[in-house]
Design a protein around this nucleic acid. Structure first.
Lengths: 218, 218
DNA sequence: TAGATTGTTAATCGATTAACAATC
DNA sequence: TAGATTGTTAATCGATTAACAATC
């Protein structure tokens, strides 16, 4: 497997490849060509082959890709075979919504526990997940070593919580706070979900519709 | 104001410009140069000037940008002066979390009403928002003409709901369902928030950390 | 073998960066 | 006026697309 630096646009396409190949796999499809993937994904066949070739040679000339093998390889690339674990910090509405509805396991993460500082929430359950007292966070990380933490605390607690996570050696944060965590230069991966940015982009496109621009996005 | 087609990378940076300029504005800052913005945002000064010049001439040689004017212009570009309205479909955990916590007004949207089909939820309130019966959706859209709809219904109802919205002429959907809405070719803007894609990207970066890659993202 | 389709190299396209004349 | 900084043009860089030899 090649190991050059993979560009961001390629990384951003990986989940889409994965979803598409999952569908093919579960629909019983055995082989697929880059031309067929192109149709389903809206990327060029050339780009798809180029993207895959960053990670190895998954296909066979004159045949295409074996769906089962391709699925295996993409799961490998995405780290889905790695038994990741997670904790969640901040059991407000969003935190609880994620615990109840989001399929962490489908993304390869087993949810170990949630944390909150509200005594009314501590030691209750959200679905199958136990809410623990925030005071036990440090010790818990030391003993359980979760792969990543979901950050759904209020803005005002975000930077402090992030600092604790970085100090304790958590490898990554899935950050929903939308504010600066002050982790510049720290050895921790931060993946941000910024809902306001997303909605502002939508507002921009609405405005363009209004002012009569043709817009072929969406 | 120029009116060429604006590229996606530029559009994606607009919300970040906005946030940065908001901070400057509320901290009382009067003028700012592209060099200063560059430091705060991590984009090159050249790129910032290039991006702004897509929309007009907001600066002054030898001076920089007047923060108040720049803020006004970016708000204009993003459509924040347009009094947009919104409805929300599907008052499950995620829908309620958004209604309770997300600042729609800060993104220029006034939330008119929410809809659900569960009789236990219909005619209750979530914060200041009234939950209406899904059966009244069509008529409501006809009379109130909301600018956009937040789609937080279960996957199995997503395509149908999206169809209703498109038929009724709603201009945009903020889509949290993560599935295909079947709106190809319809005249409606769809902005997707795909949490699974985001978490899979995080998983990918975790995997790369594990296999000893240097990774300068985050 | 002939047809199909990959992986990769080369060509093109678009986005970012650098440079600088214009000018406040 | 001199210094600063824009808006824009030109140069560079990187990503996408096209082409094709390799080969199943």
């Amino acid at each position: 497997m090649k190991r050059e630096r993979i560009s961001n646009p390629v990384v951003a396409r990986l989940p889409r490849y994965y979803r598409c190949v999952e569908e093919l796999y579960y629909s019983g499809c055995v082989r697929v060509s880059s031309a067929t993937l192109s149709e389903r994904l809206g990327f060029t066949a050339s780009q798809i082959r180029q993207d895959f070739s960053n990670f190895g040679e998954f296909g066979l000339q004159g045949y295409g890709y074996n769906v089962k093998k391709l699925r295996y390889e993409i799961r490998e690339i995405l780290g889905l075979h790695s038994r990741n674990t997670a904790i969640l910090l901040g059991c407000g509405n969003l935190g609880q919504a994620l615990l109840k509805n989001f399929d962490f396991e489908a993304c390869g993460f087993f949810m170990l526990a949630a944390f909150d500082t509200d005594p009314d929430k501590v030691d209750t359950q959200v679905g199958p997940v136990h809410i623990m007292d925030g005071r036990h966070l440090k010790r818990f990380i030391e003993t359980e070593a979760p792969s990543m933490a979901v950050l759904t605390v209020p803005r005002e607690n975000a930077a402090e919580a992030a600092g604790v996570l970085a100090d304790a050696g958590v490898g990554a944060i899935w950050d929903f706070t939308g504010c600066d965590l002050g982790l510049e230069g720290r050895d921790i991966t931060v993946e941000r979900v910024n809902l306001a940015d997303s909605l502002l982009t939508l507002s921009y496109r609405l405005e363009r519709r209004r002012t009569g621009e043709e817009d072929h996005s969406g």
